[in-house]
Computed example of a mutant assay.
Amino acid sequence: MNNHTTIITFLLWGFSSFPDLQVLLFVLISFSHLTIITANASIMAAIKLSHSLHTPMYFFLCGLSFSETCTTMVVIPRMLVDLLSVSKTISLPECATQMFFLSVFGTNNCFTMAAMSYDRYTAIHSPLHYAIWMTHKICAQLLMASWVTGIVVALSLVSIVFNLSFCHSNIIQHFFCDIPPVISLACDFTPYHEMAIFMLCAFVLVGSFILIMISYVFIGSVIMKMPSAKGRYKAFSTCSSHLTVVSIHYGFAGFVYLRPKNSDSFREDMLMAVTYTVLTPLLNPIIYSLRNKEMQTALKKVLEHANKLIPQRAHK
Rank of each mutant, 00 (worst) to 15 (best):
Y192H: 08
S215T: 02
V104Q: 03
M113I: 00
R120M: 07
S247M: 14
I286W: 10
P285R: 00
F18K: 11
L211M: 13
F101N: 05
L205N: 01
F236M: 14
V246W: 01
N307V: 13
L282H: 05
R291C: 12
T190D: 11
V153N: 11
Y58F: 10
G251E: 08
P191W: 09
S247W: 06
I287L: 14
A196N: 12
L205R: 03
S156F: 10
R78V: 08
K308L: 08
L205A: 02
D119H: 03
T135I: 03
M99N: 15
L271R: 09
S184N: 05
Q98I: 05
L282F: 09
G63V: 08
L243I: 10
I7P: 00
H54I: 00
H51Y: 13
Q296P: 04
K88P: 09
V152G: 01
L102K: 07
T297P: 05
L11W: 10
S247N: 06
L128F: 11
A41L: 14
S16K: 12
G14R: 00
F101R: 07
V161N: 05
F203N: 11
S263Q: 15
L24V: 13
T122H: 05
L290I: 11
N3D: 13
L24M: 11
F59P: 01
V74N: 09
F209S: 01
P19G: 04
F66P: 00
V74E: 06
T122I: 03
P127M: 00
T190S: 10
S237D: 12
V148M: 02
Y58M: 03
M113F: 00
T280N: 11
I151F: 12
I171T: 14
E294H: 11
P181T: 06
L258V: 10
I90S: 11
I287G: 07
F203W: 09
I90C: 08
T149H: 05
G207A: 04
F203I: 06
K308W: 02
A140W: 09
D119V: 01
G14E: 03
A154R: 01
